[in-house]
Structures are given as C-alpha cells and as structure tokens.
Design a protein around this nucleic acid. Structure first.
Lengths: 261, 261
DNA sequence: CCCAATTGTCCAATATAATGTACATATGAT
DNA sequence: ATCATATGTACATTATATTGGACAATTGGG
C-alpha cells in the first residue's frame, strides 16, 4: 500500500479528530468492535482509544452492543443526524422521488451525496427485477468510480478537482488507472449536458445514469441515479433519462433549503 | 450527593465534551448560530468555541449555513446517524406502525425514546383531524411530564429511577411539583398493565396513550403513543389501546436487533 | 505446563490543547 | 465624533490530555 507516512513520528493526535476517526471507522466497518480492535486497525495508541471510547460511551455517542465489550455508534448520533435531516428537509421528497423512479423503471434507484471527498449512497430503492442490483448504503467510494461523481464535483475548477480527489482514488478496482484528464473532460461534459451515463467501470454488467439535484447556488448538492443491467439501460436510455430529470426537478433546491425560514 | 460542586472555578473543560455540548445545543435550538452566540449561551470561553467550531467544520460535523458565519449540524452527523439507524434497523417497521396507527385512529401517533435522561419524540405522524395536535420532534422533555416516561424507566429500581431523573424534572410547566413517589407508583402500575394513559399534565386538552416497544431483554426500548383530544381519547379508549398494542407487537425486539448477525 | 496473543487497566511524562487577554473591525446609537 | 456592543483573530501560558509502557487476567495452542 502507498499510504504515505501521514505525520512525522512523535506527533500526537488531537482527541477530537481521533474520536471522529473512530466513529467513521465504525461506520465503515458497519459492525461493533472492541476498543482493542479499533486501536489496532486505525493505528492509534491503545490507551488513547480506550480513553476516547469511554468518553464517547458516557456521552451516548457510542453504545455497548454485540457483547464482549464491543461498541458501535450510539443513539445520540441518531438524534443529531435526525436533527440535520429535519433542518435540511429533503428526506420526504427524496423517498417520494425514489419511489416514483422505482415505479417507472423497475430499476435500482439511488440518492447520492459527497461525504467529504468520497461518494456515498444515502438512500436506495432496489429494483423490481428478478436479479436485483444493489449497493451498500453509506459506504465511502472513490469519486471517479461513479457516474454521480462527475456531477458532484462539477462546480469546482479543474485544479480544485485534482486537489480535492485523493490521487489514489483514480485507481480502479481492476488495478487500472483512470487518467485524471479524461475524468475532467467527463466532468465538463456532464456539466454541459446535465447528466452522465456510462457502463460502470467498477463492474462489467451494469449501466449507470446520474442527474444532479441542484441547490440554490446551482451546484449539484446530490444526485439521483439508476443502476441497470447494461442491455436494459441502453435499450431504455432516453426514457430513463427523462424519468430521472423529472424526478430531480422535483427535488431541486430542496436539499439546502432550511425548513423554516 | 446532589450534583453541586461539579466545577470548582478554574477547571478546564475537555474538548470532546465541549464539542458535543455544542452539537447538543444546536440540536436543541434547531437553528444555525454564530460561534459567538454559542459561546455566550452555553457559557464557554469564546476562543475555545471558535477553536472547536473550526475543527468540527473541517470534519463535516458542522456546516456553514444561514449566512453571516452561522453554523449548524453537518452532513457527517447525518451519515453517522443513518449508520446507527441501519444497524438497529427499526425505521422501516416504525414508519409502517405509525402509518397504520394514523389510518386506524386519525390521531397523532408518535414513536418515542430516551435521549440520556430525557424523553424525546423520534418520529411522528400527525393526525387527520381538523385541529391537529403535534409536538416538536427531537426536543428533550422531562421524563415525568409524559405518559411514555413511565414505561421507559420501568426496568429500573425505584432508587435508580430517582437517581436517573434530575430532581427539577419533577417540576411541571405549571410550576406545580409532581410527587416522586406518586410517579414511581404510576411507573409500577404501567409496568403491570403494559400501558399508560392519562390526561396530559403539560396541557389541559389532550389525553395520552403509551405502550412499550420491548427489546430482547424485555425492557421498553421505545414507546408508541397517541396524543388525542380529551373527549376523543376517553370515548375511544379501548379501541385506541388495542390499536397501539397491535402496532407495538409488530415492533417488539426490533429496535435492539442488529440487522445482520 | 509454558508460551504467545489478546484484552483491559493504570500511571508518569510531556507535548499540546484550552483558555485569558489583547487586538482588529464593523455596526449602531447618541 | 464618541462610545458600546458584537464579532472574529492571534498568541502566550499552563493545566491536562495523549501517550508509551508496565502490569494483570484470560485464552488457546502445542
């Protein structure tokens, strides 16, 4: 692995940052872990992790679950997340849009956003086909791997994009490298056209459609996507794009609009 | 000992605790605030709050919103909360139960839990009546003020209950004091009967129904409630209780059951 | 039985984070 | 113009949080 030595040795981590590193790690793993395991896997001092885990437990940010002293994300985080969701009131409209898409296309429909400098699926409706294509919700995925990724960085300048996306994220699961300049070209193309579609570059059997959901500044605050079998996607391309654009139009400006003025 | 000393002067706050104090405060306020305002209102040093706010901003835990440098809970919290919700997969069933209750009763239906030592409404469906009764979601309310509160502490011993609930929470909005022993009696009664109903003690026109949603240890992990006009509630008491019990039965064991073993 | 790995607790040392204070800027009232 | 208030930044000081390492307790081989 080419994980560059982050810091000169001897430097101390900041408690707060480490705490959120722990939370993010648990989210990634999607399972309860022992403090010891956490320490080992994120490469932090054991004593620090124990200290932080205990602090977070007493705040309700973490909870014991799964037995053997394993901990996972806690109820307090759920409450805080619900408050965010409530403030930027997009959930209701979002679910409705996914519902509509699922009805009209029978394909897997997703609502996606950036999580820091990664792409993540926030909500999903699985398709009604015999063989469903689905993704894990909440997993962090390199931006260049996804159709939505093009749209989500389109408001940045070329230089900002390259600074924003970690260089190693241009390495595809196959091991091949995606040329950053080609990626930028696709970003600009998606910006002009108002959508992006392609045969997925992370597998060999899906076709992906993505359209932006705009905030009031005109940036892509999120995307709506369809993930389809390749032949279906290509056969229904125009209709699917229409469905997506229609659904996204209903969401535009919603994600960033506070509920009460 | 009754929580007096806590802070001998000159004691420093811990960054992590202060950080979550800020987050909780923003959740309570339900609006974006300037760092300066936060510092003033939670009584923390301005420089510390600025430092922490900047750290939290750079982690995506807070976000600029509302202009003028105001900050509010950030997207990262939403993701973490979604991971919790996904792990303890109760949301789907919960929404379905509320839907069902709303259909059957036309009254306001709520899903409630403890947030630390307070009561909070997690999800709600407003009733279909001309005059709707509703509550703010996510607000922290003293446990003794609510019907659900009786059920949510029923797994504790008398002594544990009195230690758990802050003494001042027995003071009702009217200024009257609720006798802790009467409260305990009602807790034990609710435990025996498997529900609690009363004319709300925080207003003069509602009747409240609450039934427990049990986790696998048999404790009330949450409650389902109906909030109704007094005459409706009393007239339909038996039917409403049946609806609640039926809905809760469908949820039992769900809240604490991880999705994947 | 012995050894190694895993897990958790405890504690002293010191790098640094939290804080008080001073400073800079803008706004609005008088 | 002057003063008061609100807001954000910069920095030195020192109380303390982070950390390495010692010390159990437990487990599972071999």
């Amino acid at each position: 692995m080419d994980a560059i030595q982050d810091e000169a040795v001897g430097k101390r981590g900041r408690g707060l940052d480490r705490a959120f590193e722990i939370l993010d790690f648990l989210r990634q793993k999607r399972q309860a872990l022992k403090p010891n395991e956490i320490a080992a896997q994120i490469g932090a001092p054991r004593s620090s992790v124990y200290e932080l885990v205990n602090l977070l437990l007493s705040n309700g940010i973490l909870e014991f679950t799964g037995g053997d002293g394993r901990v996972y994300l806690g109820r307090k985080l759920y409450f805080l997340g619900a408050a965010y969701e409530n403030h930027f009131d997009f959930t209701r409209e979002c679910e409705a849009a996914l519902e509509q898409l699922a009805d009209e296309t029978r394909e897997t429909a997703q609502f996606c956003m950036l999580d820091g400098n990664k792409y993540t699926v926030v909500r999903m409706r699985e398709g009604a086909r015999p063989f469903r294509i689905s993704t894990d919700i909440g997993q962090s995925v390199p931006i260049p791997w996804t159709a939505s990724g093009r749209l989500l960085v389109a408001h940045l300048s070329d230089e900002e994009i390259l600074n924003f996306i970690p260089p190693q994220d241009f390495r595809l699961p196959s091991g091949e490298w995606l040329d950053p300049q080609s990626f930028i070209t696709e970003v600009r193309q998606s910006e002009r056209e108002g959508f992006f579609t392609f045969n997925s570059i992370v597998d060999s059997f899906t076709h992906c459609f993505a359209v932006p959901v705009k905030d009031e500044e005109g940036h892509a605050a999120a995307t709506l996507c369809l993930v389809t079998p390749r032949d279906d996607g290509i056969a229904n391309r125009d209709r699917y794009l229409d469905c997506l654009k229609k659904a996204a139009a209903g969401l535009d400006h919603a994600p960033a609009r506070p509920k009460r003025g």
